[in-house]
């Protein structure tokens, strides 16, 4: 059986809130290492990959591999009943028809219990290979969100050009064009406000802003975001969580 308690319900709330507009139904794959999720978005241009490691739960018990097929809108309806600071315990049998969620207020004077029905989802969990990227940019997640939001007002797509001097986000639309260039810098008072660029070769790729704006819904999970780019391969947008990550992969656009 599965029994997994999160110290704060808001971690799962934020994950589901961030991906529910991309993915409707998906399997939460549970094993002794933790809970993982991998799903393509409905239009098959983006891939979501999430891991909550067992060390992020206390206690964590999962005797055998269990796939929890969940409709994310249904899960969100239930999770909205949890306060951010509530303890959240997930429970499921080995061959479950439902997932049990228990919310406990931090003062332990309120217990809420919900069951949501599970569904059979034919979805294979495939290992995504570790990739060496030509450019890895770490920046404040709020900064990335702002850039995507601002440029999406002008255009459907953004080019991301990284070289040793900085990273330039540029777009061009009917009303004009715009760009934001970030130069690497270190904020000594708050490391999370730094911009870091690791580069083995310059890259320049174009992506759909609609998807990037959607990925930025995960910004509240982490103060920083990591963008990994190589020419002609999908962009990786990664938000680190305490004991895991939420990753989005987006295929680049190509010229006609």
């Amino acid at each position: 059986m599965l029994e997994a308690r999160l110290e704060q319900a808001q971690i799962l709330k934020k994950v589901v809130e961030a991906i529910k507009d991309l993915v409707q139904d998906c399997n939460f794959d549970c094993n002794d290492a933790g809970i993982q999720l991998q799903a393509m978005d409905n239009s098959h241009v983006a891939l979501v990959s999430m891991k909550l490691g067992s060390e992020g739960f206390s206690p964590y018990r999962c005797d055998r591999n269990i796939a929890l097929g969940i409709n994310l809108n249904s899960l969100m309806k239930v999770l909205r009943a949890a306060a951010n600071e509530d303890l959240l315990t997930l429970k499921a049998e080995d061959q479950p028809d439902s997932l049990n969620l228990l919310f406990e207020s931090s003062s332990q004077d309120r217990l809420s219990e919900y069951d949501i029905k599970l569904m059979d989802i034919d979805q294979e969990h495939l290992g995504i290979p570790d990739t060496e990227y030509a450019a890895t940019i770490t920046l404040p997640s709020a900064e990335f969100q702002r850039i995507c939001r601002d440029l999406s007002a002008l255009s459907e797509s953004v080019s991301i050009e990284a070289n040793k001097d900085g990273v330039k986000f540029a777009c061009s639309g009917d009303i004009g064009n715009g760009s934001v260039t970030l130069r690497p810098h270190t904020n000594v008072e708050d490391e999370d406000k730094s911009t870091k660029i690791e580069l083995t070769e310059p890259v320049n790729l174009t992506f759909s802003l609609k998807y990037l704006v959607n990925f930025c819904k995960a910004s509240s999970l982490s103060a920083t975001v990591r963008l990994c780019l190589s020419n002609e391969v999908p962009l990786l947008v990664e938000y680190q969580m305490g004991a895991g990550y939420l990753r989005f992969y987006l295929a680049p656009k190509i010229g006609d």
Partner: peptide, 14 residues
Amino acid sequence: EWLQQYIAPFFNLN
């Protein structure tokens, strides 16, 4: 005119 590529071929997904 931009073309949006599908993600599946990059990861050998169906």
